[in-house]
Design a protein around this nucleic acid. Structure first.
Lengths: 350, 350
DNA sequence: CTCTATTGTGCACCCGTGTGCACAACATAA
DNA sequence: TTATGTTGTGCACACGGGTGCACAATAGAG
């Protein structure tokens, strides 16, 4: 049988509320009594029942983390950042996967609300303003992560996707590529706009046939890239929305008999742990996944403590990571040595 | 303000217990009243407060998942399997990281108990019988995952680590290797015993200098492998406790000027998603991570429903995956074509 | 018509903790 | 002595929902 404050109270011949107050360090309890209560609590191995206290105080010390897929390199690292930070503040974290399906997201949302979570960190599957507005109106502190609508009056922590997409595209352009494909994610738009913007600077229109949409998986990348390499005039470079997609693209490219980077240059996004060990080592855009989660959790803690009058909007700057999977066009060199755009990248970061 | 059953009751002029019963489909409520109550509940957007019902029924519909590190490829996929299965049954999952530190594990354990979880799936940092026994005595249904003490009267789901270690070592031996290093994990012993056993069959004693211990990270693998390649007589093959460690080893091997597999053969364990895309594609042992989590969750559900009289002990069979990172010694071939031990593996699986 | 099932609903109280308020015990000042 | 704080403790009740039991309403049997 679990120990309750009433049992402690009984043994000491006091009322259970006295025990409750003593354990919560209420100033109204005498120092002497407080000590007696605390030491007995320890002796009996008392563990407060957070379900009960959650009911009466409406604070559960639980938060929810809603992401597309915890098994990805990206979100699993984000989750770790969230959990570490939350734990230090005494919170537990519920993990919820949506696969970017709106119904699943709703399901999890309701489940979290029913459980009385104190806050939610969410990477929404649905970016419609009305929908997000509704989430914000639910009365639960929210922090958006990785995805958001900047115009909304809400806290968020994201990577500057636009900058990342822009830097990479600019880099590929500087290598002489002009037919650059971008394998898009269904929800992700920022990187795409960066890509678009860089092309525009070179006077290149976006060719829809070069921007297939895929989910964020290896299989999805393979499928999308397959279409690209089978084109009459395949792109000379393929930029993928993330590293796993690049992995799939890598397979498709090779199965079609093309070499990387000799025939087709390949780039990813995320700088997953494995990226530098691929053959060739993958050129990609680094984003700080753990820090993303850490920062989101910090902000959520502040929101929950009411220490935040205005929403906090944080954009972490991504960094171009040049390895060997992209080559200079019309040149035997595999990759160019520190092109102008890297300098640009550095200035953006600073 | 959140809708409660008392509010619904008031609007209908009935007692709140009638509402409670109607929503829980008690047979004592008339069909007519049940319909009226349910439709009003839907209309008002009633969401049951699981904190409150958890207090009175002692069932929270929450479970805990305690692992070393959710950000690893292995545990993140396990977690996904757990979450998917639990969600279908109406449960939410708390995620807890221990980094294999016993104090952190205890901390999380207490946190979960305080929150009244209905069950716990745990990959314990500490495999001491007395400790595990104590966990089992806490009165909470438990399923061990990935690690356990088979002698204990407890449910578990693991990969047959021994078989995996044995198969891989046998394979390396069949390629002609005799100086085979094994980069061990701190906690993991099964794979090591398999390695030991295979060596014994060839009359080779275990050389402690060839079996450095490391954590399960890339950095750890790099550090451990560095020692190995710097030896006067380096091993001809390095078998790593998992794929990330192999990644680190790969780096160390190359930084020392050795080629893979020409100078040193390299093998991993897990068959992480990225393994086939490495250069050379990594020979490894496949284990089903998602299924591991799925099965553990299924068993926990049965335990929580009291449908399990005896503990369920499940061992999933690993499969040797031969790629190009191991070569035949004294032979120009990179890898041997289907050696006897693969046949052996197949029989073990069946 | 009374007696007895059957069915549906309400009452009281529980789950474990928290909190406003009353009040007892004691000390100090008038 | 009485009036007036302090300080510490207990009481009642709340949080939202669940459950054993009593009992009212209705129906059917004798």
């Amino acid at each position: 049988m679990k120990v309750t404050i009433r049992q402690i109270a009984k043994q000491l011949g006091v009322h259970h509320t006295t025990v409750s107050r003593a354990l919560r360090n209420s100033p109204r309890i005498s120092e002497n009594m407080r000590q007696r209560i605390k030491s007995l609590a320890i002796k009996l191995g008392y563990r407060p029942n957070l379900v009960a206290s959650g009911l009466s105080t409406r604070k559960t010390f639980n938060v929810g983390l809603i992401v597309a897929d915890i098994s990805t390199t990206f979100f699993s690292q984000v989750a770790r950042g969230v959990e570490d930070t939350m734990r230090r503040a005494g919170y537990n974290v519920f993990i919820c996967n949506t696969d970017d399906k709106i119904e699943d997201e709703k399901f999890h949302w309701d489940a979290l609300i029913s459980r009385g979570v104190d806050g939610i960190i969410i990477s929404p599957a649905n970016l419609k303003p009305r929908y997000l507005q509704k989430l914000l109106g639910a009365g639960v502190p929210i922090v958006f992560i990785d995805r958001c609508l900047p115009s909304l009056r809400a806290s968020y922590v994201i990577t500057d996707h636009f900058s990342g997409g822009y830097q990479m595209t600019k880099y590929l352009l500087s290598l002489g590529h002009r037919r650059i494909a971008y394998v898009r994610g269904e929800v992700e738009m920022g990187r795409f706009y960066g890509y678009e913007h860089a092309l525009k600077e070179y006077g290149i229109p976006v060719d829809n046939s070069l921007t297939p949409v895929c989910d964020f998986t290896i299989e999805g990348g393979k499928k999308a890239a397959k279409k690209l390499v089978r084109m009459e005039h395949p792109p000379t470079a393929i930029f993928c929305v993330n590293d796993p997609v690049a992995l799939g693209a890598m397979k498709a490219i090779r199965e079609h008999g093309f070499r990387i980077p000799e025939d087709i240059s390949l780039a990813g996004f995320d700088n997953a742990d494995f990226a530098e060990f691929l053959q060739p080592p993958l050129t990609t855009v680094h984003q700080s996944k753990y820090e993303l989660g850490e920062e989101a959790a910090r902000i959520l803690l502040q929101e929950m403590n009411g220490k935040l009058r205005e929403p906090r909007k944080v954009e972490l700057k991504p960094v171009l990571v040049i390895r060997d999977s992209c080559r200079h066009i019309g040149d035997s060199r595999v990759n160019s040595a520190l092109p102008e755009c890297l300098l640009l990248a550095t200035t953006i970061i600073a």
